[in-house]
């Protein structure tokens, strides 16, 4: 099984080299992605593939339920490197419908260590409990929390000191919130794009009702 992966790697590298003999040498010489992707660890949500980008074009951080926790040294290291060294122009928080982590948090059942990681999602559920109770279908409830969780992470990022410092320096940097469906392979823009300090107020983790917010991302 493991040997098969090496075989696949050989075929992949050979295929790339055949099409573009300088591909790997060029890739090795520099890393200049325009995007930081914060997505879920779910194996069915492959960041580069979804947006059709090649290696080198997307700086990726993935964890369960696509969180951007301000206390997580791993995430903060990624964020700082992406913003200050790579100078990415866009940060994309991408959740997905049916997320297992979100589902666990919505269920309210205990699952062990992961409950601590998912605490921000559980807090969202408690905050919006009355509204969520009004959604009879459990899967629909999970999907709404998947969206709200993305908005919450976008709001958190907009308050992050690394991001605020970048905006203070006049560095172009936008934060976007998207959701992906594993069932159809398509992205949806949650219209929560923030491009500067002034825009932070628009990133309420609670989705607006009856108010169309515009995004430049289309």
């Amino acid at each position: 099984m493991i040997a098969e992966l090496f075989d696949r790697n050989l075929r992949w590298a050979a295929g790339r080299a055949r099409v573009d003999p300088e591909y790997f040498r060029r890739l090795a010489s520099q890393q200049g992605p325009e995007y930081l992707w914060i997505g879920c660890s779910d194996s069915r949500v492959p960041a580069n593939e979804i947006v059709g980008l090649d290696p080198g074009e997307l700086f990726v951080h993935r964890n369960v339920a696509n969180l951007a926790p301000p206390q997580d040294a791993n995430f903060l290291s990624v964020l700082q490197f992406a913003v200050e060294i790579l100078k990415v122009r866009h940060i994309i928080v991408c959740g997905h419908y049916g997320c297992g982590g979100v589902r666990a948090a919505v269920s309210g059942e205990r699952h062990g260590l992961i409950d601590h990681w998912l605490q921000p999602v559980s807090c969202l559920c408690r905050r919006d409990a009355a509204e969520l109770r009004g959604i009879l279908d459990f899967d629909a409830r999970v999907n709404l929390v998947c969206e709200r969780n993305v908005l919450a992470q976008v709001a958190s990022l907009a308050d992050n000191p690394f991001v605020r410092d970048a905006w203070d320096r006049g560095q172009p940097l936008s934060i976007h919130g998207w959701i992906y469906s594993i069932q159809d392979g398509l992205l949806r823009d949650l219209e929560t794009t923030i491009e500067n300090v002034e825009g932070r107020g628009g990133a309420s983790p609670k989705a607006p009702r009856g108010r169309a917010r515009r995004s430049r991302a289309g």
């Binding site: 469906s181 949806r188 009702r209």
Partner: peptide, 24 residues
């Protein structure tokens, strides 16, 4: 389920009371 209904949840006004219907 993953396109029209989520859009409606984002766009509808509270007085539309859309959630009851979408849940059913």
């Amino acid at each position: 389920e993953e396109d029209l209904f989520p859009l409606l949840r984002r766009r509808c006004l509270p007085e539309d009371d859309v959630e009851g219907v979408l849940g059913v």
